[in-house]
Design a protein around this nucleic acid. Structure first.
Length: 808
RNA sequence: GGGCAAGUGGCGGAAUUGGUAUACGCGCUAGUCUUAGGAACUAGUUCUUCACGGAUUGAGGGUUCGAGUCCCUCCUUGCCCACCA
């Protein structure tokens, strides 16, 4: 690693980043310059970085990229006169903290506190302009009290599809008043936005716990490689499917990347089609028909078989008759490899009747039909559908030529209606784990569930002797006698619960009576600019939007969408172009970089590396470039200062004025457009221009230099504040006014334009942008006259300020 | 298999509505200063050619006075989702 020049004793022009970085970080903290004021008359601007999950490994150089970008943006907005809210906090419930705790034999809370401390130290030295007075931690009782509160609201509401909003469950209670308590409970559970149901989960016997999909690789547990099986278990769910349509339509109102919107739309997976019931003949017991969903009703004439999933009613309601099929399907694997092989068993002595031609269609139980989409059954059209064709060829099923028919005429003939189906499933909202928010419900001995009242919150996580899974598929909470005795729910909430609303808490972090107070939400409304990774597209971002819409329905928030605009940062890869990870030994620590080169050089390099949204390989060698830039700025500030001491009046250099104004526009537009790399490069160009003028022996006007320092301030806040004060300014550069481009001063008196002949560049010419076409053409002809000799110009094209083109 | 990105020097990358390709930075080369240089500064640096010139934005074709940019065909790489009927 290249070393920065050591400070030699009497060299006061050496930029001592360690001294200056910490001087300003302390001063900003003391003066509270980044504190946001709710209710200020200034226009508000809420700039938010996705909060980190403080892992044991600490930050690597990839993490701060988004934080620095958000910080640069926030600093620009602050200098432009906005009242900026730029907070930070920690998301700390969930599996990683728990696993870290188990490995290191400490309580998860201690692990979290330790990791948070590490993160805080690492963040501090970057010089980010956070309002730390609003810091939150999802595992604090004062915080998760309100996560539980929101859960209770979800539990106590249902979705009114006609009104298209959530309404109190009490409105439905009247409807079921005639039922017994148990029946009423059961019916209401079908409507609650937080509800209890059964679902297939990944169960690992060896680990004694349920695993998330991403913890299972090729049918084995990621940790330990133990076998994982599917198992039906009691679960809590959130009815996100009720919000599917609004989650799609809301995307039209927000400023997100189009590709991200597409991913969310595909994830929700709304498709339009028809439902149709095939009547059955033969020994099908009570089941009289098989309902299917299709998006291609127009191919009905080509149906030659029906395919149903192994869990379909026809089988499950006739277990005696089809025990053979049930036994066989049990051996069907769920691995990726198994799934690719199409398996099927014909259902003997049962036929489906084609609604038009009344022909008898065979029915197959197959592994390629999903049980939880549509009705778990499809009409097989081997002539049109590739999958049906594959299956038909393996089982020698007849292929019939399809005559495409207009959907409208089929609808009319068979009395069908258009329907919509969604791929998105209700979200499983329970983990058999210790380290999560307790679900604030009590199970009574008669089976009735009593939600806790607001006064009873927070329902605190009890102390346990062991927070490891207890091996029965229950959470460690099920092993605590007093907890079980009082009937508390033993599942805890998943990791994403606390992160689904944290952006609201920052608005009013210390409110004791509500998640967020009215005054705060009315003022801050929503996040104006949200910055984070693309990996949260179908998780956190979707859940947050769902919760926010629900909270809007119940009047807690004032906008439908939580995030007005979103920008995604690309990943920083190791120098080997692989994901940074201990495993590859390619992790670079930001602390080391900052220690050697200083926070400003580090910040600038992170922004200079390349386009903000692309994944880029890290190379520590490159930081020396931004460090040299910082050194040169520092040296130039000495030149300016010594001019000052001589108290000379220095005139503004007219060429420089145009360049400065151009750079003002460029840097402003680039930061607002998240093109930080080109903003940094244009600042480098401007410094080159300053130095060129200085080397010519000309002097530089101090205000011109200070405009440059202001433009640099969002990227390099430490050195710019130091120079700002050294040049006799009183207040921090953070409260200085951002320069505005004077377009009149950008105009240049000469421009160089290219001369093309038949599309090839043959020369160039200096002209005034206002000069007449005729004059320019004549001049240009002279310059390229040896290319024109003896030739006839057929056509001349002159684009003002750009190019002149002759066609021969 | 489907969807979305992206292919420009030794490297990261820049390039308005199609208008002088290779900005800016790293690295490299030479020089200056130095006991020294792995520091700093100065100059040079797409390729080819002694030079004049010629070639060049993954490959090929097209539109145009003019294409990195638009259209078509193909190749490669990355990411996400994967039997959603």
């Amino acid at each position: 690693m290249a070393q920065v020049k050591k400070n030699t004793s009497q060299d006061n022009q050496f930029y001592d980043h360690k001294k200056i970085d910490s001087k300003w970080q302390k001063k900003w903290e003391k003066d509270q310059v980044y504190k946001a004021t709710t209710g200020s008359k200034k226009q508000k601007m809420y700039v938010l970085s996705m909060f980190p999950y403080p892992s044991g490994a600490g930050l690597h150089v990839g993490h701060p990229r988004g934080y620095i970008a958000a910080d640069v943006y926030a600093r620009l907005k602050r200098m432009q006169g906005f009242n900026v809210l730029h907070p930070m906090g920690y998301d700390a419930f969930g599996l990683p903290a728990e696993q870290y705790a188990i490995q290191n034999q400490v309580h998860p809370r201690e692990a979290v506190l330790k990791n948070v401390k590490t993160y805080e130290k690492q963040l501090e030295i970057i010089g980010l302009s956070y309002d730390w007075s609003r810091k939150i931690n999802t595992t604090d009782e004062d915080y998760y009290k309100w996560t539980q509160w929101i859960f209770l609201k979800l539990y106590n509401h249902y979705y009114d599809h006609k009104a298209k909003k959530a309404k109190p469950i009490s409105e439905l209670e009247r409807k079921f008043a005639h039922l017994s308590q148990a029946d009423k409970d059961r019916e209401l559970m079908k409507y609650r936005l937080a509800y209890e149901g059964f679902s297939e989960v990944n169960w690992c016997e060896e680990l004694g716990t349920v695993l998330a999909n991403d913890e299972v690789i090729d049918g084995k547990s990621e940790r330990g490689g133990y076998p994982v099986v599917k198992k039906m278990m009691r679960q809590w769910f959130l009815r996100i499917t009720d919000y599917a349509d609004r989650l799609i339509s809301g995307l039209d109102t927000v400023d997100f990347d189009e590709s991200l919107k597409t991913v969310q739309k595909n994830w929700i997976g709304k498709s339009f089609g028809h439902e149709l019931e095939f009547k059955l003949e033969g020994e099908s017991g009570e089941v009289k028909g098989v309902k299917i969903f299709t998006t291609r009703i127009d191919t009905l004439s080509g149906v030659t078989f029906l395919a149903i999933s192994k869990d379909h009613d026809l089988i499950s309601k006739n277990p005696g008759k089809f025990s053979n099929i049930i036994n066989q399907t049990k051996s069907w694997g769920t691995d990726e490899k198994d799934i690719k092989i199409k398996r099927g068993i014909i259902v003997d002595n049962v036929y489906a009747i084609h609604p038009d031609n009344k022909s008898k269609l065979p029915i197959y139980v197959t592994n390629y039909v999903l049980s939880d989409y549509g009705f778990g059954s499809v009409m097989g059209v081997p002539d049109m559908d590739e999958r049906d064709a594959d299956f038909a060829s393996v089982y020698n099923i007849r292929v019939k030529e399809t005559i495409i028919e207009k959907p409208e005429s089929i609808e009319k003939r068979l009395g069908l209606k258009k329907v919509f189906k969604y791929k998105i499933r209700d979200a499983v909202f329970a983990r058999q784990r210790y380290w999560g928010e307790p679900i604030p419900l009590k199970h009574e001995s008669d089976g009735h569930i009593t939600p806790l009242t607001e006064k009873e919150l927070p329902l605190k996580l009890p102390k346990v002797s062991s927070y490891e899974p207890i091996g029965s598929g229950d959470s460690p909470l099920a092993g605590i006698k007093s907890w079980v005795k009082s009937g508390y729910e033993t599942n805890t909430m998943p990791g994403w619960a606390g992160s689904s609303w944290y952006f609201l808490r920052y608005m009013d972090a210390h409110n004791k009576t509500a998640p967020v107070g009215k005054k705060a939400i009315d003022y801050w409304k929503q996040v104006d600019m949200y910055i984070g990774g693309r990996e949260h597209t179908t998780g956190h971002l979707l859940y947050s939007r769902f919760w926010h819409k629900f909270l809007f329905d119940i009047g807690l928030t004032v906008t439908e969408e939580p995030f007005k605009a979103l920008r995604n940062q690309g990943m920083i890869l190791g120098s080997d172009n692989q994901k940074m990870s201990k495993r590859w030994g390619n992790v670079v620590n930001p602390d080391d970089c900052i220690n050697t080169y200083g926070a400003d050089a580090f910040r600038m390099y992170e922004m200079f590396l390349g386009p903000f949204d692309s994944s880029l390989p890290w190379s520590t060698d490159g930081i020396i470039g931004t460090r040299r830039f910082i050194d040169r700025v520092w040296r130039l500030s000495y030149v300016i200062e010594s001019q000052n001491l001589q108290n000379k009046k220095i005139k503004t250099n007219p060429q420089l004025i145009s360049k400065i104004n151009k750079t003002i526009k460029k840097v402003t537009d680039d930061i607002e457009g998240f093109a930080f790399n080109t903003a940094v490069s244009s600042l480098m160009i401007l410094l080159n221009d300053f130095e060129e003028i200085q080397q010519k022996g000309e002097q530089i006007n101090q205000n011109d230099f200070l405009d440059f320092i202001k433009l640099l301030a969002p990227f390099a806040p430490h050195i710019t504040d130091e120079i700002w004060i050294n040049l006799k300014n009183k207040n921090s550069i953070n409260v200085a006014t951002w320069p505005v481009c004077d377009s009149k001063k950008v105009l240049e008196d000469v421009v160089k334009i290219g001369i093309q002949i038949n599309g090839k560049l043959r020369g160039d010419i200096q002209v005034s942008p206002d000069s007449l076409e005729k004059e320019v053409v004549e001049e240009a002809k002279k310059i390229v006259k040896n290319h024109l000799e003896g030739k006839v110009i057929k056509k001349t094209i002159y684009i003002k300020g750009k190019i002149i083109s002759f066609v021969l």
